[in-house]
Simulated assay, not measured.
Amino acid sequence: MTPQTRLLYAQDALPVFQNRMYDSAAEGRDCPKGDMRLVEDLDTGLVRNAAFRAELVDYDAAYQNEQGVSPQFRAHMDAVADLVEDKMGRAGLIEVGCGKGTFLELLSARGAEVTGFDPTYEGDSPLVKREYFRPDLGMRGEGLILRHVLEHIPDPVAFLRQLAEANGGRGLIYIEVPCLDWICANKSWFDIFYEHVNYFRLSDFSRIFGRVVHADRAFGGQYLRVIADLSTLRTPRRDPADAVQFPDDITDRLPAQTEAGGEDDIVWGGASKGVIFSLLRERAGHPVGRVIDINPAKQGRYLAATGLRVMSPEEGLRDAAPGATILVMNPNYLDEIRQMTDNAFTYVGVSA
């Protein structure tokens, strides 16, 4: 039986991977695409992309989502590590979906006993196992860490049940995901991505877990941080009094953000926000001129959908006109970018 849903937002032909980098402009433009039909489930109250097709999603080495090169983001990870240590301790930690191992290595350097699980891990750390965390491994953790994983999972509650089973039905879990409330409040249409099949509110986790140890917003309100008791996991039920308040006019700022721009505009941030912003501006007939990112793994490669080439700050600003407009995709990095560029340009925080 198909669940009853309420349509919140629709967009066609978004790149399946906004963080996958390509070797040529043509490859970027021809990337796999999928549709977005964002709905509220009227049984559980959770929000998901009803048009999501899991068979399109296959993460590989070309997927680049490393944010640790930014001092601002490193400060965020330090704050998360403080919270994990305070609420979960340093012994018996397991990070599920540890990616390139940046956060795991941070915890380990601080003296934590931590093991990572990720079948796509490419490094050589003996702390990481290149496999999924499963019940048959016979490994149990005092605390599980799930950073920016749950939004990618088609059935998040079933996935949490699998983790609980693998951990003997006990222990605490730290969950970090993007905040739907922030997206709605800021009408941040360029924060809705195909590979994020789920979008969470803080109140969702009080319905998913019977006992929440900690719950707050971080990183300028863009992320949710939740620590909950795995033994109290349950099927969420929608509360009509807590229905999703999704703005009908979420894209109303799009014309102003596109028509006011020029072809010399510089997008700073070749990750998720920059990919979607550049794509919808191009579709509106006002493409951006260039894209800058400080991540060396992105530089010289091409973005999904638009095929724009990502430049380093040095290359991207070398011949930029004095006072040229830099569109900062994430307002958290605005001051950092001003300092890096000697405050010599016009800076616009697009979601500020």
Rank of each mutant, 00 (worst) to 15 (best):
T44F: 06
T44Q: 08
T44S: 14
G45V: 01
G45A: 02
G45K: 01
L46N: 11
L46I: 11
L46E: 08
L46S: 10
L46H: 12
V47F: 00
V47M: 02
V47E: 02
R48V: 03
R48H: 12
R48F: 11
R48K: 11
R48T: 00
R48L: 07
R48P: 00
N49R: 01
N49A: 04
N49F: 00
A50N: 03
A50W: 00
A50F: 01
A50H: 04
A51P: 01
A51S: 05
A51V: 01
F52I: 01
R53I: 03
R53W: 02
R53F: 03
A54W: 03
A54K: 07
A54H: 06
A54Q: 08
E55I: 07
E55D: 14
E55G: 10
E55T: 11
L56N: 11
L56A: 08
L56S: 07
V57C: 14
V57R: 04
D58Q: 01
D58M: 02
D58G: 02
D58T: 02
D58C: 01
Y59M: 06
Y59N: 09
Y59L: 07
Y59F: 10
D60V: 03
D60A: 05
D60N: 11
D60K: 03
D60H: 07
D60S: 08
D60R: 02
A61C: 04
A61D: 14
A61T: 06
A61Q: 08
A62E: 07
A62P: 05
Y63L: 05
Y63F: 06
Q64H: 04
Q64C: 08
Q64K: 03
Q64V: 15
Q64T: 12
Q64R: 03
N65W: 11
E66T: 15
E66C: 11
E66D: 15
Q67R: 13
Q67F: 15
Q67G: 13
Q67N: 14
Q67H: 15
Q67T: 13
Q67A: 14
G68F: 13
G68I: 06
G68M: 09
G68Q: 12
G68P: 03
V69R: 08
V69L: 12
S70L: 09
S70Q: 10
S70T: 09
S70A: 09
P71F: 07
P71Y: 10
Q72A: 13
Q72S: 15
Q72E: 14
Q72K: 09
F73E: 10
F73V: 02
F73T: 01
F73S: 04
F73G: 01
F73M: 06
F73A: 03
R74C: 09
R74L: 10
A75R: 12
A75C: 09
A75G: 08
A75H: 11
A75Y: 06
H76A: 12
H76M: 12
H76F: 15
H76E: 13
M77W: 10
M77R: 05
M77Q: 12
D78Q: 15
D78L: 14
D78A: 14
D78K: 14
